[in-house]
Nucleic acid binder design. Structure first.
Lengths: 119, 119, 119, 119
DNA sequence: GTGGTCTAGACCACA
DNA sequence: GTGGTCTAGACCACA
């Protein structure tokens, strides 16, 4: 199963990192559960181990996983993860509402269903 | 006046394009009004003329401006511009709600004010 | 001038990152001052551009520098940097005192000059 | 009882070696007392025997234990052990003070309690 | 010219 | 087997 999208302008390593970030946030991967090994995932995605490595390093920097030398990479325990993500989404929401207001579109107008059947 | 933010991860040409897009959508720039010349703006922003050119090309592709050889770039008349932008914002909104739902956060939970002071 | 120490067990990219971190913390490099380009520094240190790139990415993650595509890498403004570093040093100090106490060495005994001339 | 911390960036063999070093320095393990056998400890820690072996070799190099072929590993008698460790801790202390001075933080400032409530 | 990404492949430390 | 580092070199986006 290959979830990479070469039409996607994002670099491959970022697509990999985002994919696993979502899986972790969703709870599809439990704490301390191992991720696929760098080499295995590289083969599965027909990409270079360095690219997978970069994705994993990124995830480690962001606090989603931790790595144990000679053992592999594992999902990190972080009960506040969901809260963090929620805050990020709220910020992006605020940004959109701000942009809308700048061109005279109110928050409620934006949230309205596509066809406004006012009556 | 320089509105560029080098700490912003977006490339400079994109910041320029976004800036003018906003000005046009807001109505701050009227139809057929000329934009600053590529060279002038490049000097004003202490950046490379190639960069400004790229921003203008981008704006042309998106239908915000048109260029006249030997004369310059001008704001395009497009009564549906606001609708287009609105649709784009709605799409981004939908994307956020989708991401939220994937990790079990409902639309209403996301729209809630930070501290819910119920009643 | 090559400050790399191949006897040092730390990887090269980390030595580079640490070096620049120190220069920034010392104030030897001012905010918005450019770092040497990836390629130039690689040549100067007779190392691979990828290795320098990794060092710079590390510094960016830690908030010491920011990068502008097509322009280079620059020192980030962060007035709290010194405070952060101070806190880190204090933590390491505490760790040492803890280790000392575990084997029955008091803090003051550790701080004493090498030859204790009691008098 | 498993004292390993996989979130700890240090390799596992080092965590094992450090653990026993502490126990010996504290006096919790007496001279000539046997350490657990490589295999037993490996099982207890659910780790690889190679890893435990590496930790023991490390401890032997540092002079904390000695090994007898076919019999096991034992705590070494070394009356100067405490002095050695003290010297090591002092060196690390000096290193911290050096780093602090490089960024203009004095030794006393570093030793100060968090909030200085002078008199 | 400057940074960023990616490949292919080597070599090492660790388990 | 598993991750981590490094080299050599290519190619792209951006300024």
């Amino acid at each position: 199963m290959n979830f990479l999208d070469y039409q996607d302008p994002r670099p491959i390593y970022e697509q990999i990192a985002d994919m696993y970030q979502k899986l972790i946030l969703k709870g599809a991967l439990q704490a301390d559960e191992p991720l696929p090994s760098v080499r295995k995932l590289a083969i599965e995605l027909s990409t270079n181990p360095n690219t997978v490595q970069k994705a994993y390093t990124e995830l480690e920097h962001k606090g989603f996983i931790y790595s144990v030398k000679g053992r592999g990479n594992f999902v990190k325990v972080d009960p506040q993860l969901r809260e963090k993500k929620k805050r990020e989404l709220k910020e992006r929401l605020t940004e959109i509402f701000k942009e809308a207001e700048e061109i005279g579109i109110s928050q409620s107008e934006l949230l309205e269903p596509e066809e406004e059947n006012g009556k």
